[in-house]
Design a protein around this nucleic acid. Structure first.
Lengths: 169, 169
DNA sequence: TGTAGTGTCTATAGCGACTATAGGGTCAAG
DNA sequence: CTTGACCCTATAGTCGCTATAGACACTACA
């Protein structure tokens, strides 16, 4: 009982267009087709797609998932790199959390800087307009204040993953 | 003493291309030019760009910053919406933190499911391959497990802001 | 005066992971 | 025989930049 793409979508909770996108990206194999050129999927495809979606929910990107699928399809001796991948993601997630916690403090301070209808004297605008020393960064320099007058170094924005871009070639 | 674009960049810690991008997006006004068509900036531009960068670090997107700048340029009676904007961002940041904390638990569980060189029996792959009940979600349904067999509703992925898209027209 | 090095200009394409749109074909029910 | 749900391909748009190409401008040193 092969499935049409919409049925696979319902089964997995994935969008139809996303399934086609994963196929184009080489994460899902090109499926059989009906006479009317409709895609037909089997049990394997359901499992593979679920694996992909679970990885996505674990914060992995498509390149990493491709690697995991390749390993799954053809397991080589060592899977130590998978452990490293997971460790890297944990570190990444921790960094994001720390950054967001910090940001939250700033936003809360911002919220308290205005009580509403003050017209042109809005306290939030005022706070955003002037660099004051960061009350939340004692030891480490706060990116919200350290940014200014920096020379050459790019401070990563909040929410950005800090991947180390290996120089190509 | 007007500044060339590179000097403005050094002063603010912003990339030259980004300054030009902000101009194209209407966040910065089109500056004067030298005879050689070089952009020339003044003190106002330094302040405006710093305002923009501070907003970006507070997690605001360019559309929101455009609104804030419009208010700053031409303050209307009420600034209550700015408070709401900040509240929304706080809620957003809190949701992201919660989601990441949850994800972290899953990743840590994943890490402990494999001790390394087990070849084709890698425990991480195995864990990713099978839906087991989420040990971290007692009351609320865990998105990592609830996703499957959903009908129609799209569960947002980690790291996605949950904006309510008003249907256009 | 030549030239090397740096800075500036415009225009265009690429990133990631989708999402949206246009314009069409297929199929079952009423 | 028409309606509506589903499927197909191809292309462009999203966001906030980043990278590339190709050309012009300016300064310092020979």
């Amino acid at each position: 009982m092969p499935l049409k793409i919409g049925e696979l979508a319902r089964l997995t909770g994935c969008q139809v267009v996303t399934i086609r996108y994963y196929e184009k990206e080489g994460l899902l194999p090109r499926p059989e087709r009906t006479g009317a050129n409709y895609r037909l999927y089997g049990e394997d495809d359901v499992e593979r797609l679920n694996f992909i979606l679970r990885c996505r929910l674990h914060g992995m990107n498509l390149a990493e998932i491709r690697d995991l699928l390749a390993f799954k399809d053809n397991p080589t001796v060592s899977c130590a790199w998978i452990n490293e991948l997971v460790e890297k993601h944990i570190a990444d997630v921790e960094a994001q959390i720390a950054s967001l916690e910090h940001l939250k403090k700033h936003l809360e301070a911002l919220r308290h800087s205005c009580e509403g209808d003050r017209g042109k004297g809005c306290g939030i605008i005022h706070s955003l307009d002037h660099d004051e020393p960061c009350p939340f960064c004692d030891a480490k320099p706060c990116p919200l204040h350290e940014r200014t007058h920096a020379h050459g170094d790019r401070t990563p924005r909040h929410g950005e993953a800090e991947e180390e871009h290996a120089p190509k070639k």
